[in-house]
């Protein structure tokens, strides 16, 4: 037993680059879909469709939650309208996030805005599609909430926001390579260079006699 304990622990091969192929997912079986119903008799959605026409790509109720898919060009106009002029007025931006769909090669990123109207107790989700490397206008001038939320999306997805007042990484340290929530980012990716440079922790080579991973 003791001899076995003294053996050097198995060391992972050196960290893979962030652009390595993603970890394989479990095989997918045919699954149902959540009920999707087109919104028809809704005053707000109707006004939006009249006002913005083709820029509203679709208006659906997914699992009884209202979702609007819009064009990126009209995004800020629509959001501004929803906050200032629409009835009910969506005074609160509950959440802002992104989703990565690598199989949709043309526009793999989807920005998701969860709006909320306190007066009417109503939620509305606005989504828009982005190509890789494309930038998107900031909404910090509409809701102050967006500041840190956009920084988080920039940090974890690498999506740039035009005219954001303070676009820096927020959760990961400056100088970190890669954007972890992209699907191509390897789950167990370690930036050994960064760790060595900033924390002075060096990984031992696989033939070293020491026990443990780090020096």
């Amino acid at each position: 037993m003791a001899e076995e304990d003294n053996k050097p622990q198995e060391i992972n091969p050196t960290a893979k680059s962030p652009s390595e192929t993603p970890v394989k997912k479990l095989p997918r079986r045919a699954a149902g879909a959540m009920p999707v119903v087109e919104i028809k008799d809704d005053l707000l959605v109707k006004t939006l469709q009249e006002k913005f026409g083709k820029n509203i790509l679709s208006a659906n109720e997914i699992n009884s939650q209202q979702v609007l898919q819009v064009e990126k060009i009209a995004l800020t106009k629509i959001l501004l309208y929803l906050k200032d002029n629409a009835t009910p007025s969506f005074s609160m931006l509950t959440d802002l996030t992104a989703v990565h769909f690598p199989d949709q090669a043309e526009q793999p990123f989807e920005m998701v805005y969860q709006l909320y109207s306190i007066a009417d107790k109503r939620r509305l989700r606005i989504k828009t599609r982005l190509a890789d490397g494309e930038t998107i206008p900031t909404v910090t001038n509409i809701w102050a909430t967006a500041n840190w939320l956009e920084r988080e999306v920039y940090d974890l997805f690498g999506i740039h926001f035009d005219e954001h007042p303070d676009l820096r990484r927020i959760l990961l340290p400056n100088g970190w390579k890669g954007h972890p929530l992209r699907k191509e980012h390897y789950l167990e990716y370690k930036d050994n260079e960064w760790v060595e440079e900033n924390l002075q922790i060096r990984e031992l080579s696989s033939d070293s006699d020491f026990i443990g991973k780090f020096e």
Binding site: R29, A31, A33, I62, Q65, V99, Q114, R123, R125
Partner: peptide, 28 residues
């Protein structure tokens, strides 16, 4: 295995609105 689609749900946690936005592709 939730059906393919998306769902946002939130509760009043002691700190405020705690929400989860789930995007399911039908897998586990």
């Amino acid at each position: 295995k939730p059906p393919i689609g998306e769902y946002y749900h939130s509760i009043e946690s002691p700190k405020g609105e705690l929400g989860i936005y789930l995007v399911s592709d039908g897998s586990a």
